[in-house]
Simulated scan of single mutants.
Amino acid sequence: MLCALLTAGCATTQAAPERDSGPTPLTAVDALGDFGSIDYCSLLDVPKVAPGAVAVPTFESCRAEAGPRTILVGPLAFDSDPNIKPYDYAGPVPDGVAVQQSMFNDRSACTRAITFADGTRLDLSVTDGGGDQDARCTVADAAVGSALTAITARKVGRLTFPDGSWGRVAPCVPLDNHDLDAAAGAGSQPTAGLSGHSCIRGKVSFKLTVETVEPAGPVETLGGREARVRVAGAFCLVDATQPAPGLPGRRELAEISVVETAGTAGDGTCTLARGAANAILPRLPTPGKP
């Protein structure tokens, strides 16, 4: 359904060079290609795994919703997670790949991780707010099987980003700016995220994606754009959106956050977040403008 809306996002598939004979441990790059353009919804066989669900690709995941149930494919991760445990997955698995489970939030979600030979993992989760964990995990295992089938068949789709899309932005470039020194720390350096659509510099994090939930809070103007500021635990976040080029009815989201290392975020943290937004948001493109 969504492929008709995303002008070039779901139409192409990943071509890969032929491998030598014999088993070769499968790395994430071999399996998925360029991380910045993965169409994660191409990894989910919606009619089989979640009949009737509406699937929305973001820059680093696919979110499929059917009634109270949400299936999330992605994002990629490389960090160590103590919640990830061994799991005896019953389906076929490529050489060098492991399927694991996460024990985090396991009363309301069933989470699986496909870990490739290079240590990169693809997270998949199913949530529905109900009490039937076995039912959730049956769907999660089906999602794992769907993803592995697409990967081994070389049918990983690619997203393309029209002019003006924030998907084209190299996210560390706006953070390489002395105007961020106060919020990030003068000696800090930008570090790109695994997906290619996020960056961290010191205490400042910056992420670009397609929104799946409307940002909450009163509107104010920051960096020449409408934005919303909110506190979430130790973070003060600034959200700004624009119409998503090639995705009618959807919006792209820029999320800027500053962490309060001493505890809960407050007015001082949000002052820094507003300053970061004033430095970053003017450097983002706008559809239809040079």
Score class of each variant (00 low, 15 high):
55 A>F: 10
73 V>L: 10
48 K>A: 15
64 A>M: 11
50 A>N: 02
50 A>G: 04
59 F>I: 00
74 G>I: 00
70 T>C: 04
69 R>L: 13
73 V>K: 07
74 G>L: 00
66 A>P: 01
76 L>T: 02
65 E>A: 12
58 T>N: 01
73 V>S: 06
58 T>R: 02
52 G>W: 03
59 F>Y: 15
75 P>G: 12
73 V>C: 08
73 V>W: 09
44 L>I: 13
74 G>R: 00
61 S>F: 06
49 V>M: 07
41 C>N: 02
46 V>K: 03
42 S>Y: 13
47 P>V: 14
61 S>R: 15
64 A>Q: 06
66 A>D: 07
76 L>D: 09
45 D>G: 11
60 E>G: 15
67 G>K: 04
42 S>M: 13
54 V>T: 13
46 V>Q: 08
75 P>Q: 06
68 P>G: 02
75 P>D: 05
66 A>G: 02
46 V>A: 08
63 R>L: 12
43 L>G: 12
55 A>R: 01
75 P>K: 01
52 G>Y: 05
55 A>W: 09
72 L>R: 12
57 P>G: 06
72 L>A: 07
57 P>S: 06
48 K>E: 14
53 A>G: 05
62 C>Y: 08
48 K>D: 14
42 S>F: 13
68 P>R: 12
59 F>P: 01
70 T>I: 15
76 L>Q: 09
75 P>I: 02
53 A>L: 06
57 P>Q: 04
65 E>C: 01
59 F>A: 00
52 G>N: 04
69 R>M: 14
57 P>M: 05
71 I>H: 02
49 V>E: 05
68 P>T: 14
43 L>Y: 13
63 R>A: 09
45 D>C: 14
71 I>P: 05
43 L>I: 11
47 P>A: 12
54 V>Y: 07
74 G>K: 00
43 L>C: 11
55 A>E: 05
72 L>M: 13
49 V>I: 10
74 G>M: 01
56 V>S: 06
50 A>I: 07
50 A>H: 05
43 L>T: 09
55 A>C: 14
76 L>H: 07
63 R>D: 08
66 A>Y: 03
70 T>M: 10
67 G>Q: 07
72 L>C: 02
74 G>E: 00
72 L>V: 15
59 F>Q: 00
76 L>V: 04
61 S>E: 14
55 A>S: 14
72 L>Y: 03
53 A>N: 06
50 A>M: 12
64 A>S: 13
57 P>T: 01
62 C>K: 00
66 A>Q: 15
64 A>N: 06
55 A>V: 08
70 T>R: 12
45 D>I: 13
58 T>V: 02
61 S>N: 14
62 C>A: 07
67 G>C: 10
41 C>R: 00
71 I>S: 02
73 V>I: 15
74 G>W: 00
44 L>D: 11
73 V>A: 07
61 S>G: 05
68 P>N: 11
73 V>E: 03
64 A>L: 09
52 G>I: 08
50 A>V: 13
60 E>L: 09
52 G>H: 04
50 A>C: 03
65 E>T: 15
44 L>A: 10
48 K>Q: 14
59 F>T: 00
59 F>W: 06
66 A>L: 06
56 V>T: 14
65 E>K: 14
65 E>N: 12
62 C>D: 06
